[in-house]
Write a protein that binds this DNA or RNA. Structure first.
Lengths: 361, 361
DNA sequence: CTGAAAGCGCTTACAG
DNA sequence: CTGAAAGCGCTTACAG
C-alpha cells in the first residue's frame, strides 16, 4: 500500500547528526543553517547537501509552545480566501494552533523566494501546511515530503498527484442541481459560462450540467458552452457571445459567483432583465450573492467548512494518522434567490446590440 | 514628553531572574510557565506574580529565526479584511517577517480565551501586533505594554488612548470629496447613510459632508441624515426611510460600500433607478464596487497601503524607534463610476410604497 | 511538591 | 575559514 504523502511523523536529525554526516563541527553546520557568510563554498555545499539528505528541521523549542500551521492563500484578498481563512482559523483555534498566512510564493516572487519560504517554514518548525487554490510546485512537494511536514490541499484547481490529501466540494452534484433547477422551471435553452478547461471543479460542474440535460432528455448544444477566464471580465465577454447567438439561451448556469457578476454586467449592458428575460444561477454562494440585484440563485459551496475539515485532517496527520481516503468532498446545495424564473413565454430569438454603454471608471 | 505606548524594545528578564524574584528554583518557575499541575498553589501564585511584575517574555530562540508579527482581524472574512491582510503580508514579506492571523478574541470567545491568546503571544514571542477594526481591550493594552510587545492599530473604530500609534484614512476629506462631487453635479437634496455614531470614521465622514454643504451654501437638513448599523440590512432600512420623506433626496452619500449594497437593494425594491432618479456615492472602493450594476462611484480608501504602512511602523517600533506622530492618515480620492449623474429635471417629490417585492431566500 | 544535577540543541566569541 | 570551549535559556528526570 502506498504511504500517504505528507503523513509522516517528524523525528528528524539534530544539527549534531547533520554535522557528523557532513564531516564538520556543529558550529560550522549552525553557520550554514543561519546563512552566515563566513563558510567556505565547498564546506557549505557539503553541509547543505547533508541538511537536505537528512531532512533537517529545527526542533520546536519546547512542548508547550503553540503549534504553528501554515496557510498558503491565493489570492489573499478575495471572498473565497476570506471564507477559507475563517474556517481554518476557527478549527485551528479549537485545536490550540495558530495560523501563519502567506501569499502563494508564485505571486510575482521568484524561485529564490520560494526557497526562502520553505527555509522559513523549516526554520521555525511548521506543524503542517494548507494550500488553497495555489498548488505546491514539484519542488515544494519534494521538500515538504523530505522534511516530513504534512500538508493538505483545499479545493485544488487541478488533480493532485497520487497520495496527496485534499478537500473539495461536490462539484458534479452542484452542476446537476443548478441545471436541474433551471430545467424544472421549464428552461430548455440553457447556456453555461464555465471556468478554465482542465480544472477539477470546472470539468466536474460542466459534467453535472451535461448529466442533468441528458437525464431530462434535453439536447446538448456545444454553442451554449463558453469557457471564460474565471473572472468577471471574461464572463462578461462570453455572455455577449451567448446573446449574439441566433437562438440565445433563456438561462445561464455560471460556474462561479465572481463570473456571475460579469454576466450581470453584460446583461445590464444589453438591457436584458434578470430573471424576466434571463435566469442566472451561480456557484459558490459568496457574500456578494445576497446583495446583487436581483439576489443571485446559486449553489452553495461550504468553503469555510471545507477549510476547517482540511485543518482537522492536517492535525491528524501531524499525529501520524493517515486519513482513510485521499480526497474528501463536502456536499453542495442550491440556494434559491431572485435571479431565476420560468422562461419568457414570448421567447425572443435574438437580442439587439449594445445600446446603453454606461460610462465606466 | 509622553513615551509612545508599545514603543519599547524588549530586553526582559530571563526565567532565572523571575525565579530569584519569586524565591524559587528555575525548574519550578519553568513548571508554572508551562502550566504544569504539580506546583503548590501558593508557589504558583508567587511565581505568577513575579512573571507578571517583571513582564516575562520567553526569549526568541535565536537571531536567525524569522520574526512573527500578529494580525488581529475582525471579521476574518470581509473584503476589508482581505485588503488589510494583503497589505500586511506584502510589507511583512519585504521585511522578512511572517504573519500570524487570528480572529478578534472577542468573537464568541470569553475572557479566558483572550488571556489564552495573550499567553500564546508571549510564549512564542511575537515581534508585535497589528489590530484591524477590533481594538484591544484595556487588559490587552496593559499586557502588551507590560511585556513590551509593540502594537499599531489599523483604521481603529474609536479614538485610541493617548500615545497609541494608529493608521487611518483621511475620512473627513473623503466626505468632502463625495459630497462635493454630488454638489457639482447639481444636487442640493443630498441624503447620508452614516455608520454608527461615535466612531472615528463615521464622525469624520459626516463632518466632511456638512463642511461640503456649508461651503457650497446648501442648507443642512437633519432629516437627511440616517445612522445605520454599518451593514447592508441597516442601510436598506434607512434608505426606505429617506424615500418615505415628503421631499426625498435626489442623491445619497453612503458611508461604506457594504452599506451601499443595501442602498442598491432598497432602491431596486422601490424601482428607483440609479443614477437617473437617484445618485449614489459609496466609501471604501471595495472590489464589489466595480461589479454592482451600475458600477459604484465611491471614495477610495487605500486599505492595503494603510495596512502596509502600519506594518512598517511596527517594524520601526520593534527596533526601538518611535514614530514621529501617533496618527498617520493616508489620503482618499473619488473614483467616478456609473452611479452618479445630475439630478432628474422632473424632481419627483415622493416615491410610492414598495411595489415589486421580489422573492428572497 | 521542590530543586540540584544533568542535559538539550543550539549559538557566540575567539584562538588558531 | 574552522572548531574546541563556554555559554544560553530553558527542560527533563529523579531523589528527597
Amino acid at each position: 500500500m502506498v504511504r500517504a504523502r505528507g503523513a509522516n511523523v517528524a523525528a528528524g536529525p539534530t544539527l549534531a547528526v547533520v554535522a557528523r554526516e557532513a564531516g564538520v563541527s556543529v558550529p560550522t553546520a549552525s553557520k550554514v543553517v543561519n546563512g552566515r557568510e563566513d563558510v567556505a563554498p565547498e564546506t557549505r555545499r557539503r553541509v547543505t547537501e547533508a541538511l537536505d539528505r537528512l531532512g533537517y528541521v529545527r526542533r520546536p523549542r519546547f512542548a508547550g509552545a503553540p503549534g504553528l500551521v501554515d496557510l498558503v492563500l491565493h489570492p489573499l484578498d478575495s471572498s473565497r480566501s476570506g471564507a477559507v481563512l475563517s474556517g481554518v482559523e476557527a478549527a485551528a483555534y479549537e485545536a490550540g494552533l495558530e495560523v501563519v498566512v502567506s501569499a502563494a510564493p508564485a505571486r510575482g516572487r521568484d524561485a529564490r523566494s520560494e526557497q526562502g519560504w520553505l527555509d522559513k517554514l523549516t526554520a521555525r518548525g511548521s506543524s503542517g501546511v494548507l494550500f488553497h487554490t495555489a498548488e505546491p510546485s514539484a519542488a515544494q512537494y519534494a521538500w515538504l515530503d523530505h522534511h516530513r511536514i504534512p500538508y493538505v490541499l483545499i479545493d485544488p484547481v487541478h488533480e493532485p498527484p497520487a497520495g496527496v490529501v485534499s478537500v473539495g466540494a461536490a462539484n458534479w452534484q452542484g452542476g446537476v442541481c443548478a441545471t436541474g433547477h433551471l430545467l424544472e422551471l421549464g428552461h430548455e435553452r440553457i447556456g453555461v459560462i464555465a471556468g478554465h478547461r482542465r480544472t477539477l471543479a470546472g470539468e466536474a460542474r460542466l459534467a453535472g450540467y451535461r448529466s442533468a440535460l441528458a437525464s431530462a432528455g434535453v439536447r446538448y448544444r456545444p454553442e451554449y458552452v463558453r469557457h471564460a477566464d474565471s473572472d468577471e471580465a471574461g464572463a462578461r465577454l462570453r455572455t455577449h457571445e451567448l446573446l449574439d447567438l441566433p437562438e440565445p439561451p433563456t438561462a445561464v448556469f455560471v460556474c462561479s459567483d465572481r463570473m456571475a457578476l460579469g454576466v450581470y454586467a453584460a446583461l445590464a449592458e444589453r438591457e436584458v432583465r434578470v430573471p424576466e428575460e434571463m435566469s442566472v444561477v451561480g456557484f459558490d454562494d459568496l457574500p456578494e450573492a445576497r446583495w446583487t440585484a436581483p439576489a443571485l440563485t446559486t449553489v452553495r459551496q461550504p468553503l469555510a467548512e471545507m477549510a476547517a475539515t482540511a485543518l482537522r485532517l492536517l492535525v491528524r496527520m501531524t499525529h501520524g494518522e493517515r486519513p482513510e481516503g485521499t480526497r474528501t468532498e463536502l456536499s453542495t446545495r442550491l440556494v434559491r434567490r431572485a435571479s431565476t424564473a420560468p422562461p419568457p413565454t414570448a421567447r425572443p430569438t435574438a437580442y439587439g446590440p449594445v445600446t446603453a454603454q454606461r460610462p465606466t471608471a
